[in-house]
Lab assay of single mutants.
Amino acid sequence: HMTFVALYDYVASGETDLSFKKGERLQIVNNTEGDWWLAHSLTTGRTGYISSNYVAPSD
């Protein structure tokens, strides 16, 4: 899985979204569905959809 880092804080707007904080590391589970990616937070252990605009590759 690809690992990304959050560029900004994000508060989930629905049950399927994932809230995260700036600097949080996220593993991308599925990024084939446009701008919203299914991600797993390595910080909180939660999984949900994130906006690809809010993250950048961590490598």
Rank of each mutant, 00 (worst) to 15 (best):
Y49G: 02
H1M: 13
N31L: 13
D59G: 11
T3F: 14
D35K: 09
F20H: 01
E15L: 12
E33Y: 10
W36L: 13
Y10E: 03
M2L: 13
A56E: 11
I50H: 00
A12V: 04
E33Q: 13
N53W: 15
D59C: 14
Y10H: 09
S41K: 00
M2R: 11
I50C: 02
L7A: 04
F20L: 06
T3G: 05
S41N: 12
T32R: 10
L26A: 00
S58R: 06
K22P: 01
E15I: 09
A56Y: 09
S41Q: 04
Y10M: 05
A12L: 02
T43P: 01
V55G: 04
Q27W: 14
K21Q: 11
S51Q: 15
T16N: 14
L38V: 06
K22Q: 08
A39H: 00
S58V: 15
K21P: 01
I28G: 03
L42Y: 05
H1P: 12
N30D: 13
G45K: 05
T16V: 09
L26W: 01
A12T: 04
E15G: 08
M2K: 12
H1I: 13
E24F: 07
N53A: 14
D17I: 08
F4E: 01
G34L: 07
A12C: 05
P57E: 09
H1D: 12
G45W: 02
A6G: 04
E24L: 02
S52P: 15
K21H: 08
I28R: 06
L18F: 07
D35W: 07
D9P: 02
S51A: 09
S52H: 07
W36Y: 12
S41D: 02
F4R: 03
L26S: 00
Y10T: 03
V29M: 11
M2G: 10
Q27D: 06
D59M: 12
E15A: 12
S41E: 01
K21A: 08
L7I: 08
P57R: 09
V11K: 08
Y10V: 08
D35L: 09
D17K: 12
A39S: 02
E15M: 09
L26D: 00
P57G: 07
Y54H: 11
T47N: 06
G48N: 00
H40G: 02
E24G: 00
T43G: 05
Y8E: 10
G45S: 04
M2N: 11
G48W: 04
Q27C: 15
V29C: 14
T47C: 12
I28P: 11
V29K: 06
N30R: 08
E15W: 07
M2V: 12
H40L: 14
L38K: 03
D17N: 10
V5H: 04
A56D: 06
T47K: 07
N30W: 09
I50V: 13
W37R: 02
T47I: 12
L42Q: 06
K21D: 05
D35M: 08
S51F: 14
S19V: 04
R25H: 11
H40W: 07
E33F: 11
T43S: 11
T32H: 09
V29S: 06
S13W: 09
S51N: 15
V5G: 00
W37D: 00
W36T: 10
L7F: 04
A39Y: 03
L7Q: 06
S19D: 06
D35F: 09
G45N: 06
V5R: 03
D9Q: 01
L42G: 02
L7H: 02
I28L: 08
S41V: 01
T44R: 01
K22H: 04
A6E: 01
G14R: 15
Y10I: 06
T3R: 06
E24S: 01
A56W: 09
K21I: 08
G23Y: 03
S51K: 15
Y54K: 07
W36P: 13
F20C: 02
P57Q: 09
S51C: 15
V11T: 12
K21C: 15
L38E: 04
F4D: 00
V5S: 03
S52R: 14
S58P: 09
N53Y: 14
Y49R: 08
E33P: 07
I28N: 05
G34A: 11
T3K: 05
A12F: 03
S52A: 13
F4G: 02
G14P: 02
E33C: 14
V11I: 13
G48Y: 04
M2W: 10
S19M: 05
K21L: 09
Y10F: 09
D9R: 00
N31K: 14
T3I: 15
S41Y: 04
K21V: 10
F4I: 05
D17G: 11
P57D: 06
N31Y: 14
T44H: 02
I50Y: 00
I28W: 02
E33H: 12
P57S: 08
P57A: 11
E15Q: 09
A12E: 03
D35H: 10
W37A: 02
L18D: 01
T32M: 12
T32I: 11
W36K: 14
G14Y: 12
D59Q: 11
M2C: 15
T16G: 14
A6I: 03
L26G: 04
R25F: 14
S51P: 15
G23M: 03
G34K: 11
H1R: 11
F4V: 14
W37S: 01
T16K: 13
K21N: 08
T44K: 01
G34Q: 10
Y49C: 09
T47S: 09
H40F: 13
Y10L: 04
V5I: 13
G48S: 01
N53Q: 14
V55M: 06
N31H: 12
S41L: 03
Y49W: 14
S19A: 06
N31I: 13
D9I: 04
P57F: 10
T44W: 02
S52L: 09
V29W: 13
L38F: 09
A39N: 00
G23C: 06
R46D: 08
H1N: 13
N53E: 14
G14E: 12
Y49L: 09
S19P: 05
H1Q: 12
L38T: 03
R25I: 15
M2E: 10
E33S: 12
H40Q: 13
P57I: 11
L26M: 08
L42P: 07
D59K: 10
R46F: 08
T47Q: 08
A56R: 10
R25V: 15
K22I: 06
D17W: 14
I50M: 03
A56V: 14
A6K: 00
V29G: 04
Y54R: 05
W37I: 07
L18K: 00
A56K: 11
F20M: 04
E33K: 11
A39F: 05
M2P: 13
K21W: 05
S52W: 06
A56G: 11
W36I: 12
G23I: 01
Y54W: 09
L18I: 07
K22Y: 04
W36E: 05
Y49N: 04
G14W: 11
Y8T: 08
Y54I: 07
R25K: 13
T47P: 01
G45V: 01
K22W: 03
G23A: 03
L7Y: 03
E24Q: 02
G23D: 04
I50W: 01
E15N: 10
W36D: 04
L42W: 05
S19H: 04
R25Y: 14
H40N: 07
I28E: 01
G34D: 09
V55H: 03
I50K: 00
S13N: 10
S58T: 13
V29Y: 09
N30H: 09
K22T: 06
F20Y: 07
F4C: 07
S19Q: 05
D9L: 05
N30K: 09
N53T: 11
A12P: 04
L42M: 08
F20A: 01
Y8R: 07
A39T: 03
D17M: 14
N53R: 13
L7P: 03
V55S: 03
E24T: 02
F4M: 10
F20W: 02
T3Y: 15
T16H: 14
T43Q: 08
N30M: 10
T44F: 03
Y54C: 15
I28A: 10
H40V: 15
A12R: 04
L26C: 06
L42V: 07
Q27E: 11
S58Q: 12
E15S: 11
N30G: 15
H1W: 12
Q27S: 08
G48A: 03
L42E: 07
V29D: 06
D35P: 08
G34V: 07
G14L: 12
E33G: 12
D59N: 12
H1Y: 14
Q27H: 11
N30V: 10
